[in-house]
């Protein structure tokens, strides 16, 4: 067996984290991206800047503020405590919340671009063919934005796989709970277990590469089909 049990657990947590994060971002991000692609609100740029922040912010900074928010003395963590719950810092749930922020631009921006690229016309056509606004969204906007959804899902998933700084800040390194692959690799290197670090690193490299190839191939095919 080339993977140790601990490594397999870390892999499981990583995949679960990335999947859950991507799913949440698609659910929350789709209406937000749709709205941002179509609104003429003059302060939209502020929201766009907020969405893009995780692109430039050191993950440790993001993680630090999330830790403050979610910790027992933070506003959110404190609220949960007073409601009889657990603070979220150093839990898997806290990790998911952190990842959602961390990967947000990688999901929302492709979706917003895809919705913008559709333009007004197909939706107007659908309206003159008796489709209500919700009907238009599901039968015209979503199918036409399909390449954007594929890009958003893969980028969101892949980016969450590679998360390190945020996890370390708010998740810590609890095996079976918050220890993800990138941290397991770090641990192996710290312990001079280069062979194990190699296996995990190469695996992650290959997985990321395959996913990106998929995105670019699918988008290329879509562009070719519709050009």
């Amino acid at each position: 067996m080339i993977f140790s049990d601990a490594d397999l657990t870390a892999l499981g947590i990583t995949l679960k984290l990335a999947g859950l994060t991507t799913l949440i971002l698609l659910l929350l991000g789709t209406p937000l991206a749709w709205w941002m692609a179509r609104t003429r609100w003059r302060f939209k740029f502020l929201l766009e800047a907020v969405v893009a922040l995780p692109l430039v912010l050191p993950p440790t900074v993001l993680g630090f503020y999330l830790l403050l928010m979610l910790g027992p003395n933070g506003p959110l963590g404190g609220l949960l405590l007073s409601l009889g719950g657990q603070p979220l810092a150093f839990t898997f749930t806290g990790l998911v919340i952190g990842s959602v922020f961390y990967s947000m631009p990688f999901v929302i921006q492709p979706l917003q671009d895809a919705f913008s690229a559709i333009g007004q016309r197909p939706l107007e056509v659908a309206a003159t063919l008796r489709a209500s606004p919700l009907d238009r969204f599901f039968t015209v906007a979503l199918p036409l934005a399909r390449p954007g959804f594929i890009t958003a899902s893969v980028l969101g998933f892949a980016h969450t796989l590679g998360e390190f700084g945020v996890v370390l800040m708010i998740g810590g390194n609890i095996p079976g709970e918050t220890q993800v692959l990138s941290i397991a690799i770090y641990d192996h290197v710290e312990g001079l277990e280069y062979a194990n670090a190699h296996i995990l690193s190469a695996g992650l490299l290959l997985l990321s590469f395959i996913m990106l190839i998929t995105v670019y191939a699918v988008n290329r095919r879509f562009r070719l089909l519709h050009s």
Binding site: R121, E124, V140, L144, R146
Partner: peptide
Amino acid sequence: FQEVGLFVH
């Protein structure tokens, strides 16, 4: 419409 606007999907 002037530019037709058939649904490409």
